[in-house]
Amino acid sequence: MSATDAIPSAKGPKGLARLGAEAVSWLQAAPLTLVLGLFLIFPIVTIVIVSFWDYSEYALIPDVILDNYTYLLSSPVTWSIFLSTLGYAAASWVLTLLIGFTVAYFLAFHVRTLTWQIVLFMVCTIPFWTSNVIRMISWIPVLGRNGLVNQGLMGVGIIDHPLEFLLFSDFAVILAFVHLYTLFMVVPIFNSMMRIDRSLLEAAADQGASAWQTLWSVIVPLCRPGIVIGSIFVVTLVMGDFITVRLMSGGQGASVGVMMNNEISLLQYPAAAADAVVLLAVVLLMVFGMLKAVDIRREL
């Protein structure tokens, strides 16, 4: 039932009222459908079509060839690039999950007043609304050759030479992913935790469960939806990343996004499109796997 049900009225737009509830819903959903159709469906269809095209140094040649895919799948380079991307995703997933869960656990169960929970939660989420590029750049004075970490370690005398692996390395890439994306874990896990009925925890304690047992047997299973949603975010963001790997590895690191960007700058659009199709397939498979575990619409 809603206000937009078909009730003829003196002032209202009569045509609209007569259309019936279903039509009103369609009209209301139309702008969203239009935008997603035009800027999500069509572009993806374009990518799929172009991935079968041929190309020269100057132009795209409409065609139906499998060369882009056979080249992609037969090249050991692309396989290793996909593997390295999966590696980044796995490492970032484990770290963001552990850190995100711990932070959410602290906020949900160890901060006592709602006001403080909201304040500290905001502290965790505010960086989400600032620039990722700037947040990556901000590691330069910290991790660089003459950065704070090296200066500190040398000052204390732990090392004599600056550590070179801190910036422009795989270490830096994963650190940046954790820095950028942990809050995608914190938010949904915190949300799940806040819905847990506190009497369940009391019941567990009354039955003699230790804090650790309560955490593992009660809280973690009930947080599964949050964990899944956070994992989907982190994995898809890392799999499709281009700029973090490019900036933080100093151009040495390889990921599918970087490979696609290189091909695009060489105007090899069909090759990039084939990469994109394979990447999309991999990402969707991973997401479907994770979604088996949870009904997201119920979690909102």
């Binding site: 795209l60 898809t236 499709g240 999309l280």
Partner: peptide, 27 residues
């Protein structure tokens, strides 16, 4: 369908959307 399409929009890698729209305009 529209709901899942919206969720898809969230999880399709940004670079794919970028490439797709760029290509579409080009074509």
């Amino acid at each position: 369908t529209l709901f899942y399409l919206t969720v898809t929009s969230l999880i399709v890698p940004s670079i794919l959307v970028s490439l797709g729209i760029g290509l579409m305009f080009r074509v």
